[in-house]
């Protein structure tokens, strides 16, 4: 039945790679480029408008890292989860819980700071692990499970104490005040930690098998399973990473604010997710870069500083600007995926 006639030397009309335009539009790096350009444009606009108010000082730029270090770390966790095709709504609660838990350990229980830090990171990672375990083993939507995590950790904050605990431990305040000079300006410990986290996350995502599996299950989980990838283990690990990052973000937040409070960081998961999406990571998973997330956080941070420099604007404008940006970027993503399908 089939063409058993021998084939004359037919020309090789193999699949040609896609045309230049489609390559560019389909390039997964494009959104990162867009975000980086946006950041640069905003920065230049800020320079021209507030030049006389010292916007051009290198320290203003470095402050973006100092003031948003915790958000950067939280957003890295969110990036892992979103890349894998999931979502983590518990980030803000875990951050709040970590501030309470550590403050309580150090101030009320007299636990030494290093031990308290280790315990807090352990609890955060374990919380993430549990959520991942439930999501995988009981096949429940991540949205639901991490929503439960959100309430659980917020509740635990209140179990520890209903009041905020301010931190007077001398090692904490000296850590918080430490500045590392870079010549042009200086960075805090928190900012440096955040930059290290970005670097490590980039390495893990691009140079380890685990990192590639995160992309694979985000691309198509069913296929990843059929390809023989341990998709369950990967998923659990992703939520563990996110839990760990949230706890670390909580520690940085505590260092920044120097208190524990049951209502710290309410809703911060949404900032982390917004930064990730603005940084070009597809909410459907499988596409994005942690460098994009860095720019996403910087853009959000820059909006905040510009509004501060403006002076008369209410801080609510930050939210409005974030909302507008988010919409714009989701539309860009939509256009890109639509383009890819044709």
């Amino acid at each position: 039945m089939s063409a058993t006639t021998q084939t004359p030397t037919a020309p090789d009309s193999r699949t040609t790679p896609p045309s230049k335009l489609t390559t560019l539009l389909g390039d997964r790096r494009l959104p990162v480029l867009v975000t980086a350009t946006l950041f640069l444009a905003m920065y230049i606009a800020g320079l021209s408008r507030y030049q006389n108010y010292g916007f051009g000082e290198p320290q203003v730029f470095l402050n973006l890292f100092i003031d948003n270090g915790y958000l950067l770390v939280a957003a890295v966790g969110a990036t892992f989860v979103i890349l894998s095709g999931g979502i983590d709504l518990s980030i803000g609660s875990v951050i709040g819980f970590t501030t309470m838990f550590t403050a309580w350990l150090v101030e009320r229980q007299g636990v030494s700071l290093p031990l308290a830090v280790l315990l807090a990171l352990g609890v955060g990672a374990f919380g993430g692990f549990l959520m991942g375990y439930v999501i995988h083993n009981f096949e429940i939507q991540p949205f639901i499970v991490t929503l439960a995590g959100l309430f659980l950790f917020r509740g635990l904050c209140l179990v520890i104490s209903k009041e905020s605990i301010s931190i007077s431990d001398s090692s904490v305040s000296s850590l918080a005040q430490t500045r590392v000079s870079l010549g042009l300006g200086e960075l805090s410990i928190g900012a440096i930690a955040a930059l290290v986290v970005i670097g490590v996350a980039f390495y893990v995502l691009h140079y380890t098998r685990f990192g590639r599996r995160v992309y694979a299950i985000g691309g198509n989980e069913q296929s990843a399973m059929l390809m023989g990838l341990p998709q369950g283990r990967t998923k659990i690990a992703v939520y563990t990473v996110s839990g760990f990052c949230s706890a670390l973000a909580g520690l940085l937040f505590m260092l920044y604010i120097q208190s524990g409070d049951p209502l710290h960081a309410v809703g911060m998961e949404l900032d982390a997710i917004a930064a990730t999406v603005i940084g070009g990571t597809l909410l459907t998973g499988g596409s994005g870069y942690v460098i994009g997330t860095l720019f996403g956080v910087l853009v959000l941070g820059l909006i905040k500083s510009i509004i501060q420099f403006e002076g008369t604007l209410s801080s609510w404008w930050t939210k409005i600007a974030t909302g507008v940006l988010l919409c714009a970027f989701i539309l860009i993503q939509r256009a890109m995926t639509a383009r890819k399908q044709t």
Binding site: R212, Y215, G218, G219, A224, G286, S287
Partner: peptide
């Protein structure tokens, strides 16, 4: 059953 978002090599 492959991952469309990854490269052919991957």
């Amino acid at each position: 059953n492959l991952c469309p978002n990854l490269s052919v090599a991957e």
